[in-house]
Each structure stands twice: as C-alpha cells, then as structure tokens.
Design a protein around this nucleic acid. Structure first.
Lengths: 268, 268
DNA sequence: CGATATGTTGAGACCCGTCAATTAGGGTGG
DNA sequence: CCACCCTAATTGACGGGTCTCAACATATCG
C-alpha cells in the first residue's frame, strides 16, 4: 500500500461520491474566503484520486484505530459515521468529535506517532486511506492538497471550539438541541436539509458525546418529545418544531451555526 | 503592511526569542515523528523572519481581534498570554483556549473571513504579525512553512481534545488540577519546569476557562490550599504538592500529559 | 423464544450554581 | 501616609440541575 502517484497534472474534476456538490456552489462553505475554493476543490480531487485504490470498510462498533496504537494512515470517510473516543482509566468515556461522510480524519497522523484516543465506527463505514508518507509526498509537491487538508483541520477546530463552549457553558437541553441542529445540517451538505435524518447513535453515545449520563439524556429527550419538538425511533430523528429547537440552542451557537440554519428545508 | 519577502533561501537558523531551544532537542515535542523536526524548525525560522518587521503590543485586557470582526493577520506570540474568548448573548463567557509565548494564533484567518470569538490579551502582550496573503504566498512556495503552521493547528487541536474531555467528564477539582499541570509545563518549554510560575488570570478568567463559576473555583482553590497542595498570590502560582495535584488530574489526562509531567523539575 | 442491548422511569443524593454580603488588595489623589 | 475607590477574592445559605442506583419495559437478534 505504498503506491506513489506523484503529482498528477490538474485533472478534470473527477466524480466524487454520490450527492456531493461543487465547493464553488457556495452552499457548502459559507463565510470562507472565496478565492481559495478552486484550490481546495482541486486539492480534494487530486487527493481522493490518489486514495481511491485503497478502500476499507468497518462494521458498526468496530475499532478503526485503537487508542495509543501507532498508526500511519490518513482516512477519507465515504459513508457512515465515525467517532473519536477517549476512555479514562475509570471507564468514563468521552466522544470528542464525530466525523461524517466527506471528512478526512487521522490528519494529525502526519505529525504524531500515536494518539490517546480511538477511532470507532458508529455505523457501517466505508473509507479510503493513504499512508502518511505518501500524503507527505503529495503535500510537498502540491500546495492545493496541503491546503485541502489544512482546511480540514481548521474545520475540525472550529467544531471543537463550539464543543468547548457547549460543554463548558450549555445545559443539557441546550447541548442536545445544538447537537441536533449540527448533525441536521452536516448529514446533507448538498444544501437541502431535511427534517428527518439518520442518527446512528444510541442514547449512550449521545451521553458520551455531550458529557452527560444516559439517564439524563433520556429525560431531556422525553421532555422534547412530550413538547412535540422532536420524534425519533430506530436511528431516525425528526425535528418537528424547528423554531423551538433553534430557540433552545440559540445561546450556545455562533454566527456560522445560525446562518447554516437558514438553509432550504425540504419535507421528510 | 504588505511586504512580500518572497521565499528566502534556506537561511542559517536565525536567533529566535530568548530562551527558546531547538526543536531537535526533543524535549519540546515528545512523541512526534522525529524526521519532521528539521522541517518544522526551518519553517519557523523563515516564517518568523518574515514577520519580524511587523510588531505590535497590547495591554492587559485589550482586545486583539474583536468577535465577528474581519481580520487578516497571522500572529506570533512573543511574550504574554492571549485568550480566545466566546461570549454568549446572555453574557455567559467561555475562554476556549489560551495561547502562550511561541504559539502562532489566527492561523484560521487564512480560510475564514471572520470568527465568532475574540482574541484578548490576558497580560501585557507582544506579537509579530503578517498579512494572510503574504502567509499564503509563503506557504505556497515553502512546504516547511506550511508544515510549521499545520503543526500549530494540530497542536491546538490536540489541546482542544483534552479540553473537551475535561469539560465533558471532569469535575471541578480535576479540571483545576489538569489546568495547573498544563500551564506549568507550557510556561517554560525549555525543559526545566519550576514549581512556581506566573499565572496571569483572575479567578473569573479561570472560571470562564473551566466552565465553572468564580465562587466554585474559589472554593476548590481554597480546598487545595488548605490541603497545602498549592499556594498563590499576585498572579503567581506554586504547586507545593505535585504528586497530589497529579493524582487528582490523572483520570482526565492523556499519555502526553503524563509524560510531560516527568520533565525535570527545578526549585522556585 | 430466550438473551442481550437499549430505552424508560422513579427516588434520593450531591456537585455546582445563584444570590448576597463581606473582606482583601492595588491604585490614586490629597 | 492616609482616605478613598474599585476590582478581585472570599464566605455563607440555599436551590437546582445532573448523577447514582435501581427497577422495569422494549427492541433487536440468532
């Protein structure tokens, strides 16, 4: 798995996964410097083309990279959800972040020999991967690829800033509402956002993600359901009363979240 | 402020700030892929040389970049502490992260027109800065510079992972102990870590950093002081009983934190 | 049709927040 | 050097949000 494609000439943008839209559409990355979009788009095209030969899939619950294990691959998530999980010596568990299709993960692999948290599949997952040394070669020869990965970490970082704010200052209801709105927008980056989306997390996962207990998550979800703000079953979540959820999440959201909320909405 | 130094030839590594040590020493960046260190070191040298002409200082409490304000500079922190602060509409405040001398901040500026949080000086601060377009030029022409900034975001991200874990799963005592150990190591990257260090944060700052209230921070600090684990006054913090603090913080630390704790220790 | 994981609900305890008052510290002008 | 001011630190009483423990219900799966 050490194919070194060199730095291909600017290719015609190849077909990416199913419903992905061009970055240039603007809907995918609001508030970013527009002059960089073509570079990012091309970087992604070249990089994913280099990754394409190396696919790997995982079953729900499966560990992709174990905690503390030396690893050397950059992953591109094609389908499914992936969690970055940190377990404390006394069994407390924190889901630090969740990756959705289209994300690159394991970018830090380039610098770090190993990391203190695991990467686990929340659902059936399909990925493409590339040895970090190949990534380094690509990055050194093609600034656009460097830029695309760089942008990925910046995006992750921005999300972490929101998480720190939510965990530090939000109550349970606010954290849950903000999480729902975040996933709602992210599950479909094509611009059309549905009231209903697949949420492949148990309430235990949600608790570990939000820094709460299962019991309390369940109570708050029940409260929201009794208020007819949401419904859910079998891994599907429906936001029935979007304004209500937005009102709850409002205080711990930032300008980007709120502008994302204005995306078109389509029926179930 | 749009000087474009181009991509200088590999310079002899210029003198960096006072007590900084070479990255190659190993003490500064444990657990990183060693083969990258020379590149990072050279990237930093070239980048900071390009920034040197543009210095700017700030007084304690002063806003460096206001929330939502379009900004265009990459900053290098020479002396002092800087906080990234997010204020919610109802006055709740979260300090997302703290930058210490040697850090670059505002790296995301390259991609984002504006950001939802402010950058504020916690103490007297001196910085050097560079227009993001100049940074882009440098990055495109010199992979080492790209790598150095990339590494900075990765380091920030790693820190944010710890913050999410601490805020999500740590109690007040654990958060405070982990914070003290983190700052203790970071204030002096030269490898020799003192029991006493300057901590230019009020208890209100600490509360905003840890997602607590001033009152509760004060109570926990008092408890630690009564237990003769720490002492503090006038912006100086002394860890009297390091093993006790380490024991408290242990559950929410990761392997990197714990290995950092093994650094040499010198007297006050 | 059991077996196991996941979801649901109640009772009580505890950590931390809120409100409010007081003390200490650092700076300034007289 | 003292009076004054303003911020930061400190302490108490009380309430509430979340956790713990425990039981039960429901869903999922071979």
């Amino acid at each position: 798995m050490n194919n070194r494609p060199g730095a291909p000439e600017k290719p015609a943008v190849p077909e990416t996964s199913g419903s992905r839209v061009s970055w240039s559409e603007g809907s995918r990355f609001p508030l970013h410097r527009p002059e960089l979009l073509p570079h990012l788009e091309r970087g992604e095209a070249v990089l994913t083309q280099a990754m394409a030969p190396n696919a790997k899939t995982f079953k729900p619950g499966e560990t992709i990279v174990a905690e503390g294990e030396p690893h050397r691959y950059l992953y591109w998530l094609r389908t499914g959800w992936v969690a970055r999980v940190r377990r404390m010596p006394d069994q407390r568990t924190q889901i630090i972040t969740v990756f959705l299709p289209g994300d690159f993960f394991g970018v830090k692999t380039i610098f770090l020999l190993r990391q203190p948290d695991a990467l686990e599949a929340l659902s059936s997952v399909s990925t493409e991967l590339l040895d970090y040394r190949d990534v380094l070669d690509l990055v050194r020869n093609d600034p656009d690829i460097s830029m695309r990965l760089w942008w990925q970490i910046c995006e992750d970082q921005h999300r972490l800033h929101r998480r720190v704010t939510g965990l530090g200052r939000g109550n349970a209801e606010e954290r849950i509402a903000a999480m729902l709105l975040d996933f709602r927008v992210r599950v479909d980056r094509a611009g059309l956002v549905s009231k209903t989306f697949r949420l492949p997390m148990t309430q235990q996962h949600i608790a570990n993600y939000l820094g709460l207990t299962v019991v309390h998550v369940n109570r708050v979800l029940k409260r929201l359901r009794d208020a007819e703000a949401i419904t859910f079953s079998k891994g599907r979540m429906t936001i029935q009363d979007l304004p209500a959820i937005q009102k709850i999440a409002y205080p711990i959201q930032d300008a980007l979240d709120r502008s994302a909320a204005e995306l078109d909405e389509v029926g179930t």
